[in-house]
């Protein structure tokens, strides 16, 4: 295997900041050097080998095994290589990620993909609240790249999202695309209340009609949406059902809003072919 494998010795008693462990940051180091790296945990600092068993040598691929629900900031600002989690991830997964690939076989905590600028992040199961959203005090959420959640996501997914593609194959919580600035969010399952709250621009693509739309979204009727052809082609090869979106003419009911905030955003509800 061309990389390092980290196996969690036990679920840590406190949360651990894993941001020093990305393929690009450990490139060129020996396994012993990586083992001695400090990881912040509460007000303490832990050596990597106090938390993990190490196997293999640092390379372009990093594998983390075990229940990582308390491992935060995995893949923060990584630019290249791949991280594969054979388990869950904690909060701030892939925050500020610029390139490379992160794959989580389990679920991810809050703020996954926040401030993400590039690369591919795939969560096989579920994601917490504030997926691809802006960090508190930050003006922008996700700014680029592709984030796919094969399961469900919590509330405020795509809050202040600026650019990039967020795909949620399952259900999504309340206030999806709130304060969205631009970019594309696609949701395969049900969407919670207040979708598009204070949305400025951007696209929220839904396979299922929501129970209700905000009154500040105006119906623009059923339209053929040509840009969906380009999106469908770009999504081929991604995990999940949106990869097989028809590349032909796609019809959708288009609502534009939030009229309380400029009204240039769109919610597209896909109609059957």
């Amino acid at each position: 295997m061309p990389g390092l494998r980290l196996t969690l010795q036990a679920v840590p008693p406190e949360r651990v900041d894993l941001s020093p462990l990305t393929p690009d940051r450990i490139a060129g180091r020996s396994r012993a050097e990586v083992a001695a790296l400090p990881l912040a945990s509460g007000n303490r600092s832990l050596r990597v080998d106090a938390v993990f068993k190490l196997a293999g040598d640092p390379g372009p691929e990093l594998v983390i095994e075990g229940d990582g629900s308390r491992l935060d900031r995995i893949g923060e600002a990584m630019t290249q290589g791949s991280i594969r989690l054979r388990g869950n991830a904690g909060a701030w997964l892939g925050v500020g990620m610029c390139g490379g690939t992160i794959e989580v076989e389990g679920s991810a905590g809050a703020y996954a993909g926040s401030g993400m600028q590039g690369g591919l992040l795939h969560v096989h199961q579920h994601a917490g609240d504030f997926l691809a959203a802006a960090a508190p005090g930050d003006h922008q959420g996700m700014r680029g790249g592709v984030l796919v959640v094969s399961g469900n996501a919590g509330a405020r997914a795509g809050d202040r999202m600026r650019r990039g593609t967020l795909i949620i194959d399952g259900d999504v919580g309340d206030c999806c695309a709130s304060r969205m600035v631009a970019g594309t969010i696609a949701v395969g399952g049900a969407v919670g209340r207040n979708a598009g709250l204070a949305m400025r621009r951007g696209t929220l693509l839904l396979r299922r009609p929501p129970a209700a739309l905000l009154p500040t979204f105006n119906d623009c009727g059923v339209q053929v949406v040509p840009i969906l052809r380009l999106l469908a082609r770009a999504w081929r090869g991604l995990p999940g059902p949106f990869a097989s979106l028809s590349a032909g003419d796609l019809r959708a009911r288009r609502s534009m809003g939030d009229l309380a905030n400029g009204g240039r955003g769109e919610i597209l509800i896909l109609l059957p072919d």
């Binding site: 650019r163 631009a182 594309t184 621009r201 696209t203 339209q223 053929v224 949406v225 040509p226 840009i227 380009l230 999106l231 770009a234 240039r264 769109e266």
Partner: peptide, 24 residues
């Protein structure tokens, strides 16, 4: 002012509303 853009795979496309639908 009704135009909108989409950045897809690093390329920017403009969507201009026209009377038959949308010009990309």
């Amino acid at each position: 002012g009704f135009q909108a853009s989409k950045l897809i795979e690093g390329r920017r496309y403009w969507r201009i509303p026209v009377m038959d639908g949308e010009f990309v």
